Each structure stands twice: as structure tokens, then as C-alpha cells.
Amino acid sequence: MELLLIRHAQPFRLSDPNGADPDLTPDGEEQAKRLAVALADGRYGQVDRLVSSPMRRAAQTAGFARDSLSLDVATDERLVELDHGWTTYGAVHNYTDRRLLLQDMNGGRLGENSFDPELFRDRVVAGVEQVAASADDGVVAIFCHGGVINAYLSHVIGTATMFFVEPYYTSVTRVLALDGGHRQVLSVNEIDHLR
């Protein structure tokens, strides 16, 4: 089977003392529409199943695909981003040096917040592997987050650091999931649907 790890579309930056969980911007909605058209047109194969993080930016992106493919969207809490529950969304935009951003994230920090990278990766891998185990042959689109994609890819590839790539909004990263636990990265950061 093939897993499509799809980063959500562009959300608003947001601060909320109850937990920042922003909606998509108008540009983000346009990105999600273009992705949905590409999925419906079969650009990434015939999608048989949709799974999403419950966070708004991922769920809203998945909603456009749901409407174009006429498929239900299952949610999985294990696919939430590392910033889940933080009061501010958009801390990465405060970094002017990409190397410092990746260094901080690999050290379990992002802005003023901290997280446990290993616990994060363990949760993400468990979630994605459960999706792979519960699906038949075919294509499953997983709507998630940049950190989630990095965590899973670093597991599959066995990189020394967890965070090493910046997935673009609505980018598609394809992973072949074969029986016996074999995983093969087929592509990273496909964005032709945005052109």
C-alpha cells in the first residue's frame, strides 16, 4: 500500500490561552482546493481512505479532499503536531536562521516551548503504523503536520536527527508500506498540484 503524508494547508498565526488551533487562511483554502482536485484526478493514485490529525488546519485540509473524493475522514489523535496545546501557533516564523530552527527542534525546543522528541516520534510512528496495518492495498492519504512528517521519515530512513526537511503546505510525501514492516520513501515534498 502507499501512504500519502500530506502537510496541512497554510493556517493563520494565532495566540490563544486555551491552546492555539488556527483555521486555514484564504490562501490555505485555495491550496487545499488544488490538492483536493489533484487527489480526485488521480495524480497520486486512487485514494481509498482519508485519515487526519484532529487539529483544525489538518482537518480542514482533509475536508476539501473528503468533498472531492466522497470519502469519510477518520481522525487519529496520535497525528497531532508537537505544538498541540501550546498557546501560540507560528513560532517557526520567529526564526531567521533555518539551521538554528532545526537545531532547536532536534533539541526539543521551539521558541519558548519544549517537547520530548523521542516521545513525539514514538507517538507519531505508532499512529502511522496503525493506519498502515489497518488498511488494505491501495492509497491512504494522511493529513498531518510538518513535524509529524519529519518524525515518521526520520524513523523510516534512520536519520541521525529527527527534523531535517521543511514540508511545504499541502505537500505530498509518499511512502510505500509493504507487509512485514518494509517501508520505502518514494518522494518528499511533491507540490506540482500548486502550480
Rank of each mutant, 00 (worst) to 15 (best):
A74P: 07
G108P: 01
Y95I: 14
H93C: 06
L71Q: 12
T25H: 04
E77Y: 00
R78M: 05
S70Q: 15
L82M: 13
L35V: 03
L50A: 05
R49I: 08
G108I: 00
D27W: 01
S53H: 04
P26V: 08
G63N: 00
Y89Q: 05
D48W: 09
H93E: 13
M55Y: 03
G28K: 00
G107Q: 13
R99F: 04
Q31E: 14
F115N: 01
P26A: 07
G90C: 09
A65H: 07
F115K: 01
S114N: 12
E81F: 06
G90Y: 01
A40W: 11
E81M: 09
D27M: 10
H84I: 03
N106W: 06
R57S: 00
R43S: 10
T25A: 03
A40M: 12
T61G: 07
D27F: 06
Q103D: 13
Q103E: 13
L110A: 01
D23R: 11
L35E: 07
V92A: 07
L69S: 05
T61A: 01
F64S: 02
W86Y: 11
D116H: 08
V37E: 14
D23V: 01
P54N: 09
N94K: 15
R99A: 12
R78W: 05
F120L: 10
E29K: 08
P117K: 11
L82F: 10
G107N: 15
L79R: 02
V47L: 04
M55A: 11
D48L: 08
L102R: 14
L35R: 13
T75G: 08
E112H: 10
A74K: 15
N113C: 01
D116T: 03
A65V: 02
D67Y: 10
R57L: 07
D116N: 14
E112L: 06
R99C: 02
K33N: 10
A91T: 09
G45D: 06
L119E: 10
E30Q: 13
T88L: 01
E118A: 06
Y89K: 08
H93T: 07
G63L: 00
D76Q: 12
L101Q: 02
Q46L: 09
W86H: 05
R43A: 12
R43K: 15
F115V: 03
G108C: 04
R99I: 05
D72P: 12
L119R: 10
E81G: 08
V125Q: 07
G107T: 05
L71M: 13
F120W: 13
G108N: 03
S52T: 01
R66G: 00
Y95W: 12
M55I: 11
E112D: 13
L119M: 08
G107A: 14
A38F: 06
W86N: 01
T87G: 04
D116I: 03
D76E: 15
M55D: 05
Q60G: 00
D116A: 01
L119N: 04
A91V: 07
P26E: 12
